[in-house]
Structure formats: structure tokens, C-alpha cells
Design a protein around this nucleic acid. Sequence first.
DNA 1: TATAATGTTTGAAC
DNA 2: AGTTCAAACATTAT
Length: 243
Amino acid sequence: MPEGPTVVLLKEEVQQFTGKRVIAAEGNAKVDIERIRGQEVIAFKSWGKHFLVCFEGFTVRIHFLMFGTYRINERKESPVRLSLTFKNGEINFYTCSVKMLEGDVNTHYDWSGDVMNDTWDPEKAETRLNKVPEKLICDALLEQDIFSGVGNIIKNEVLYRVCVHPESKVGKIPEAKLKMLIEEARQYSFRFLEWKRNFELKKHWLAHTKTLCLRCNLPIIRKHTGVKKRRSFFCENCQLLYP
DNA sequence: TATAATGTTTGAAC
DNA sequence: AGTTCAAACATTAT
């Protein structure tokens, strides 16, 4: 379910509930659900893969992890983790992590670290990358403190598009190339958003789950790479390794 | 049917 | 005390 752009889509879908009062809240989330009832939604926000429902004095943080889902104005069979009912409809969350954040939500997040945010700061990402020269780029791209919102699909597509081997060391990638990669992380995330909106995301995958390289027709290598051991799809011929 | 997959947190082990 | 790593969690499509 996740990756930053998907959470941005969710945010768009719930705009009908902004400013509305929660008339009923239920679910098996291990938080004080009672507290939500009667509160007005001040705003829906997102930071990377975090979906945030902001109320006066606190925020409900939803993280969908690997298997989380949601339904708007409908329900699934399975037990609901958190359900918010408004006069004009409802939002239901399943198999997600739910946490309460106290006080001003702005004190909890650096918005400029989110690739989908208006305030995204590529130079800050570069600074943060320069602090971890020994890390492999496949791990660094998944670091939410550097590229908040980037997930495994975006990782693979970005690396293929900028022709960088996933097992390259961050510190060995030339500065110009690293800047391109940071730029692509944002650009691809926005394309992901539009493709996902139109239910055509997979159609545009160039490397992820592919078997042949579109550029050179050689096999796409599938390997669990880095400390994170997430699967990478890459072309050894077209994607340069900076060891 | 067993496996693997868009992910993160936790706590044991070093 | 700081870092590392595997386990835990959980759902669904193939």
C-alpha cells in the first residue's frame, strides 16, 4: 500500500472531511480512541509514508507498513483498526500502525525531508547523504530521514533511470550524478503519483519486476541488496557501479 | 499451498 | 553505551 505518493493520494481523497467533526471513532488500535470522538479535523497532512490526521492539540499518525489499507465510505470484511465517522461519510483503516502525536505536529516533522512536500530541500538531502559515504545507495534511498516517502519501487526506478548500480557506495558517486539522483527521486515520485492516480503505475515500470533491460536487452538482475536486503532490479551493463 | 511482497520497530547480541 | 541484526507483525496475490 505505501510509498509517499500513495499517501498523497489518500490525502486528496479525504479532503471532504477537512474541518468536519468526528461523530464516532472505533477500532482495535491500541490508542485512546475515545479521545478522537467529537473532535474536528483541522487538517490532513502527510510526511513521507506517514498519514496525519491533525486535531486541536494532537495528531493521529497512520503508517500502513507493508500491508495496510484503507476504505473511504465503505468497509472491508476484516476487523477495522481505526474508523472515523463524520456526518458526510467515513474513513476506515486496516492493518496499519496507529500512534498519537502530542502537541503541534510541526514539532514532530522536518517537512523538507519529504520528497512530496512543497518545501522538499534537495541540498539538505545531499548534506545528509554526504554524512553516510560508506552506505550503499540502495539503502540510502530507503532512509526515511534522507528521502522520506521513497520506497522500494521508487528506489529501483530511480536507480535505473539515472544509471546507477544499487550497490554503489554513496561516497563514491560523483557529485553531479548524486544531484541527478536526488532530483530524480522527486521527479519520479510525482510521476508515480499521477500514474497511480490513473491506475497505470505498473505499466511505466522500467526495471522493477522486469526481466530484460529496455536499453540493452540484457537480463535485469534481481538481487536482495544492502543492509536492508530489499529486492533490487538492475542492469549490470547500463547501471554503473561505484564501488 | 507455500512464498514473497510497495515496511518499520524492537530488543537481543555484540 | 553504541551499533547491528534478525525476529516480529500482518495480508494477499501468485
